[in-house]
Amino acid sequence: MGMDRREFIKSCSLVAVMGLLFGCRKIPLEELAGDLPSLKRFEDEVKLALSQAKKSLDLVKIPTPGALKIPGASTLNRFGMAIDLDSCDGCGKCILACNLENNVPLVPNEDAARGRFMHWVDMRGSAPFMCAHCGNAPCERVCPTGAANHTPDGLSAMMYKRCTGSRFCGANCPVQARKFNFNDAQKLGLARQFNREVPLRDKGVMEKCSLCLHRLQNDRLKFKTSLTVGETAEEWRGRGVKTACAEACPKNAIIFGNWLDEKSPLVKLTKNRVLYAPRELADLDPSVVFMRGRR
């Protein structure tokens, strides 16, 4: 095998080129990352979550939420929800509607077994429980990068690209309404974009109920587009917008609306009702409250 130096170098370079080509060939299958999960798997996971729900709610009376007390708050809008405990029978349709509307991912089996779901709404004391969008929110106070912030119209918004995953907000939420993306749902084929309006969250980010921020945003933008074309000169009050869970509830137990707008269904339907909130949130000025019994 008397190979002289020139042939030796030629064959080495050939091998190197082959290696290079092999390395950087585009793996077509990479983007597909497995097939998209079917709708049935989402429904099954909600049923599993319902069967495992064991936390209860320790409710205490609170006054009707008023305007926000943070500087620069809007005096016209304070969005919130009221959940009627009398008419809610814990069917769980709102959880599935929320998961489909906000592209909430599935979780691998060992997390599901341990009850570590990603659902933004979970059943506590046979009633749907989600982030209460507190006016004086403890999670926003301790978030280091400012990813958790409060909008002037009362939503505790989450900027996923600013989140560095320190998980301090999850620790500081007294009722644990925040869920952490432990796994890369897209890579494991556990996430599916049912609603193109809402972007998928990537791994290592904390997420929570956004009070269907995208619906409110779209409605506000549509109103402001038609506003200056000369239709109605008054301000946007978010009328007619409903959250996914409020729409899906067969008994209309979840009422979405604007606490500061008399014409909003929220103020009308909670006028003669007694409002409750979990004990830990009572003095944090929550805007998602519970109702039970008549005044």
Binding site: T145, C163, T164, D202, G204, V205, M206
Partner: peptide
Amino acid sequence: HLGVVENFYMV
């Protein structure tokens, strides 16, 4: 221990 390590500088 951060979830998104490359965002650490935002702190």
